[in-house]
Design a protein around this nucleic acid. Structure first.
Lengths: 342, 342
DNA sequence: GAATTTTATGAAAACGTTTTCATTTTATGG
DNA sequence: CCATAAAATGAAAACGTTTTCATAAAATTC
């Protein structure tokens, strides 16, 4: 059909020819190299605009080993928190002239490994990762790290020392705040549904929970603490177990919103009044929590701030080349969102 | 720090040397070229694996004008429907060895234009687009189209003839089904909150609405039909207007779920019983609709099917090179999800 | 077994930049 | 105004593939 009219892209040579300059000078001008006259620079820029010139990323990347592309691995983009973080990252990177390749691991370790490999092969300039919940070994990122490619972990980060940068929410404080809130509103028999302790997220949230209980001299009933995959089904099962006992809890701190929602459903189905008989608080401020009846209290994680920080740190590292390794994680504050369920 | 131990990537030349073959043969073997002996192929593949060889995308792309990367422009990845479509697309493309660059227009036309430009410059092999609601002019995609790059529009597609491929939900049927359902459950005075008619989505959904009304010989009250941005606030305003009149509607078909939720909130706040006094149906089957009380009826759009179809059509076009232009849009069926609000 | 076709390989150019090194031009100081 | 330093430009190589064209090796035909 319209195969003939391929409007071939103008190259640096076209600009060179038009201005009677060498391609080398054009390249320097376009890259704002200090050794080129101001007048020449502006001439080149003008001509480039006039010819609709667009740098060929691949040629440029091949020669300079820079792709101007950042990789991102995330469990699932449909998770509200991640969607927000990604949006912020993308908009910020865009301003700095970087592209973003977003990949989903579907929370599978094998997928995460494969993606790390692919993104390494794609020669991304940097990598941003929110790990799988099962990721405890990080050797699949070694290649990147030892090639000097900045790797930034956020949200779900390695537990032990790993030569990369970490940005995380204040999960300990989140757990602490949530639990204190339940206590302050009069609860004493508090249950806790959390995730597998292989992830820093749940280690910290649970630690915050225990700290608050201890501080208020409240006992933690081991039968009311769950560490399992945080699915709807698992949460309902846990609720069933707890509410078939002789003594039942009067409050629940769920380490994510999905399980808090499941718990609320369970309560409704079983005639348990929320918040009168059972107070519930979740984690993440998922949009659903504000819509369900009664609206769920939860912990706000400020995804936009997380995204902002990631890009800030990233640009710093890309500029300075060398990064300080082994430093403390950057911690983004969290806040309590109080609603009708507590 | 660890600058010294950059483990440089092995190239095609390393394989060539190891096997005493020429780089040309290696390249052909890796690309499964017919003119290379089976034995040689397997030798090369084995050695490539052994050396941990990964093709340099940029070199390959520069020479062959293929990036093995597909661009995607979407209003917002946090919209449930789009998140699901993207996930499907990504997983499918991944199996075919393609990368996906996901970009968000934030529903801004200027952003969409800029992104089309950037992705063109990035030499993506194909482009997938869900337009902005304001996009009525599509000339910013002309460059891509006339360069022979497959462009696939989905969900929000151009209204008039444009030489590209379209994949859309059956919005007319969705509007029709929703309205018929309201009528069949006993409603007669049906209101309709829709979006701006600049988008095919709302043209079609509204057309379906009108068709159903006409077929059942019910009048459409023009004061009860709104064409506005489908935000929470606008919906509440519309509801206020309608329910301050002498006659009030007994059912509402909202063209998206956000406004259906807003309408439900309005009803709750004003003591209007749903579904007794007012039946409500939304559109898209957003996760929130099943969680709100009463659960909202809505229209399921099967985002996974949409994603699947997109990739199917895309791979077809990438393989065959030439695409059939000006053909009918591919239409993905929709279904009614009946819940408590109707 | 020579002539021809088919199959498999190699040499070298090409893709569009960036960058090193060399060279020319301009500015500076005495 | 010459010597020198500084600034601006150019020539050419390089990045790692793919691909055209040529050639060598193997298979086929008579």
């Amino acid at each position: 059909m319209n195969k003939d009219k391929k409007p071939q892209q103008n190259t640096i040579l076209d600009i060179a020819e038009a201005l009677k300059l060498s391609p080398a000078t054009i390249s320097r001008a376009l890259n704002n190299h200090p050794h080129v006259k101001e007048k020449t620079k502006s001439d080149v820029l003008k001509m480039a605009a006039q010819l609709g010139y667009r740098r060929n990323q691949m040629a440029s990347g091949l020669r300079s080993n820079k792709t101007h592309t950042v990789g991102l691995i995330v469990p699932r983009i449909s998770m509200f928190f991640h969607a927000e973080v990604i949006t912020t990252i993308q908009n910020a990177l865009h301003k700095h002239g970087y592209n973003l390749i977003i990949c989903q691991s579907n929370d599978l370790l094998t997928m995460e490994e494969e993606l790390a490999d692919i993104l390494y092969a794609s020669r991304v300039d940097a990598l941003i990762v929110a790990c799988t919940l099962q990721t405890t070994d990080f050797s699949h990122f070694d290649k990147l790290v030892s090639s000097g490619i900045p790797v930034i972990f956020y949200d779900r980060v390695p537990l032990d020392a790993y030569p990369a940068t970490f940005i995380k929410g204040d999960d300990f404080r989140g757990g602490y705040l949530a639990t204190c809130h339940l206590i302050e509103t009069g609860s004493q028999k508090i249950a806790h549904i959390s995730g597998k302790l292989s992830s820093n997220l749940y280690q910290d949230r649970t630690a915050g929970f225990r700290k608050a209980m201890e501080q208020h001299q409240l006992p933690v009933n081991p039968d009311w603490v769950f560490h399992q995959e945080l699915t709807h089904e698992n949460a309902k099962e846990a609720m069933t177990k707890m509410f078939s006992g002789a003594i039942v809890p009067d409050a629940l701190f769920s380490a994510n919103d999905v399980t808090a929602i499941a718990a609320l459903e369970f309560a409704k189905e079983n005639g348990i009044q929320v918040p009168r008989d059972l107070k519930i608080i979740g984690y993440s401020n998922d949009p659903r929590t504000s819509i369900i009846t009664p609206a769920l209290s939860t912990i706000e994680q400020y995804p936009a701030k997380v995204g902002q920080k990631i890009v800030e740190v990233l640009m710093e590292q890309l500029k300075n080349g060398e990064r300080e390794v082994g430093q403390k994680p950057y911690v983004i504050p969290v806040d309590l969102i109080r609603r009708m369920s507590s």
